[in-house]
Simulated assay, not measured.
Amino acid sequence: MKEFTVKEVQQAIEQGKKLNLIDVRESDEVEAGHIPGIIHIPLHLMEFRMQELDKNKSYIMVCRSGARSGRATQLLASYGFDVANMTGGMSAWKGQVQQ
């Protein structure tokens, strides 16, 4: 499974790179604070909503600690998506947060 650290993702955002971040946390968690510009697809809906995603794009999965996003990464990779997990999740995030 491909992985990025929180620091790598934050640096890429600060450098102006366009990242496709998918937050797989529940709605109340996302409303409490998320990385600006994320796509919100709760983990339990991922299998039903993956058709909304483009297999020609790369995605980075985000959750609270990295466990749920790891499961989402494995699921999407098994369907041929270019996807990576952000290790550490929002618990380790030091960058900008939107509510």
Score class of each variant (00 low, 15 high):
33 G>E: 06
82 D>G: 00
25 R>K: 07
11 Q>H: 04
56 N>L: 09
39 I>Q: 11
29 E>W: 10
23 D>R: 07
67 A>P: 01
5 T>E: 12
16 G>F: 11
50 M>D: 02
91 S>D: 12
55 K>V: 12
9 V>E: 01
11 Q>Y: 07
64 R>E: 01
12 A>S: 13
58 S>W: 00
75 L>Q: 01
31 E>Q: 15
66 G>F: 08
97 V>L: 03
89 G>D: 01
66 G>R: 03
95 G>R: 04
85 N>R: 00
79 Y>W: 00
7 K>L: 14
85 N>E: 02
22 I>V: 10
59 Y>R: 05
83 V>I: 11
21 L>G: 04
89 G>T: 05
16 G>C: 14
55 K>Y: 08
28 D>G: 07
47 E>I: 06
90 M>Q: 04
94 K>W: 00
89 G>F: 09
98 Q>M: 15
11 Q>N: 11
25 R>Y: 04
1 M>G: 15
82 D>M: 04
7 K>R: 15
32 A>Q: 01
8 E>Y: 11
64 R>C: 00
58 S>Q: 07
60 I>G: 00
43 L>Q: 04
77 A>W: 04
17 K>E: 00
88 G>N: 11
28 D>H: 06
68 R>D: 00
68 R>C: 01
98 Q>F: 10
16 G>Q: 07
71 R>V: 14
38 I>S: 07
42 P>H: 11
74 Q>H: 07
84 A>L: 09
19 L>P: 02
10 Q>H: 02
37 G>Q: 03
32 A>F: 11
31 E>A: 15
32 A>S: 06
91 S>E: 14
59 Y>I: 02
49 R>E: 14
81 F>H: 07
26 E>P: 01
29 E>C: 06
43 L>M: 09
43 L>V: 09
37 G>I: 09
91 S>N: 15
23 D>I: 05
44 H>Q: 15
48 F>T: 09
2 K>Y: 13
35 I>V: 12
40 H>K: 05
67 A>S: 14
2 K>N: 13
3 E>F: 08
1 M>Y: 09
22 I>P: 00
51 Q>Y: 14
71 R>N: 14
98 Q>K: 15
9 V>C: 05
87 T>W: 02
82 D>A: 02
1 M>R: 12
54 D>C: 11
50 M>V: 10
90 M>I: 12
24 V>N: 06
66 G>V: 08
94 K>C: 01
27 S>E: 13
83 V>S: 04
65 S>M: 13
57 K>C: 05
43 L>T: 10
24 V>A: 06
39 I>Y: 01
33 G>P: 06
47 E>L: 03
37 G>A: 13
69 S>H: 04
86 M>A: 10
